[in-house]
Amino acid sequence: MLEKNPNPSVAVLLPCYNEEVTIGKVVRDFKTALPQADIYVYDNNSTDRTAEIAASEGAIVRKEPRQGKGNVIRAMFEDIDADVYIMSDGDDTYPADAAPAMVDKILEGYDMVIGDRLSSTYFQENKRPFHNFGNRLVRGSINGLFGAHVTDIMTGYRAFSFTFVKTYPVLSRGFEVETEMTIHSLNNNLRLFEMPIQYRDRPEGSVSKLDTVGDGIKVMSTIFRMIREYKPLPFFGGLGLVIDIIGLVLCGSVGIDFVHTGIVARFPTLIGAVMLVIAGLLLIVTGIILDVMAKNDRKEYILNANQIAFLKRSSHQ
């Protein structure tokens, strides 16, 4: 068994946009919960005193000009080196006192710890019914596709290992990044641990940046895109099978007419049906080819993760 690092470095990552009402308390809470941690506040073009207040509380403040939470997380993962990462929000909706237990789980060997809001107080605290519906819809679709049992797909409170952070490709630009993280982890069979946390709604005076409809569309488009990329055989194969069935039914109807009359009376229907069958077969073949490529990508990811983990262990020796 590998020896644990006796003095692991911990980084708390707080992406922020106009959070002057709450950021001071959030930084203080994490300093109390994780006194040994470095707390990073990445200011994403705030127009208020978010950066100033965070700096006055002792946080390391940096700027990220590319708008969007996904862009901020991408910059954080590129810039910051630590043994354990805690990602939270600057709106004081997540409890900092859960962070030490999340750190412990990463040190035990988990790749990502998920702060599970939905098993505790989320549905009582969150006053936005469409958000609750969206969480259930996303959870059901992803768990069904990957055969998983993740409770909170979209939580912004997570802990990561060094290997996860340095091998995870951040593609999303906005709030859909949490969904992308979960799909990425399930697709690559990473070690996940869900920890129930006490969620609380934003305090008075703090305004949510979420757009229920707009962000919901982005999340669903992200799921659609990642299903297409990570599960190409069910995606293209299922679509091709449906098209083939339609084409064969049309071919069968023309064939029945031919048996009864001895002539092909509907040439356009026959031609269209044959083209549908061919198109369906091409989609199935495409799904098979892309599925092989997706498996090779997973193999490459495992090799890269092993290399990163080896280099990390070597640096501690």
Rank of each mutant, 00 (worst) to 15 (best):
G156Q: 04
G156L: 02
T163R: 05
T163D: 11
F164Y: 15
F164C: 03
V165C: 09
V165K: 01
K166G: 06
Y168N: 05
P169G: 09
G174T: 09
F175L: 15
F175E: 12
E178K: 02
T179H: 00
E180N: 08
E180F: 04
M181T: 02
M181I: 07
I183M: 15
H184S: 10
N187D: 15
N188C: 10
R191K: 15
F193P: 00
E194W: 04
M195G: 01
I197H: 06
I197S: 02
Q198F: 09
R202Q: 13
P203D: 04
S206T: 06
S208H: 02
S208G: 08
D211V: 04
T212C: 12
D215R: 12
G216P: 02
I217M: 12
V219A: 01
I223Q: 02
R225L: 07
R225Q: 11
M226H: 11
E229C: 00
Y230K: 03
K231I: 02
K231V: 04
P232W: 01
P234K: 12
P234D: 11
F235N: 07
F236S: 04
G240Y: 05
G240Q: 06
L241T: 12
V242R: 11
I243V: 15
I243F: 02
D244K: 14
I246S: 07
I246W: 10
G247Y: 01
G247T: 06
V249R: 08
G252Q: 03
S253A: 13
V254Y: 06
G255E: 00
F258G: 02
G262K: 07
G262D: 09
R266I: 01
R266S: 10
F267K: 14
I271K: 10
A273V: 05
V274I: 15
M275L: 15
L276W: 00
V277T: 09
V277S: 03
I278E: 04
A279H: 01
I288S: 04
L290Y: 15
L290Q: 15
A294W: 08
K295Q: 14
N296H: 13
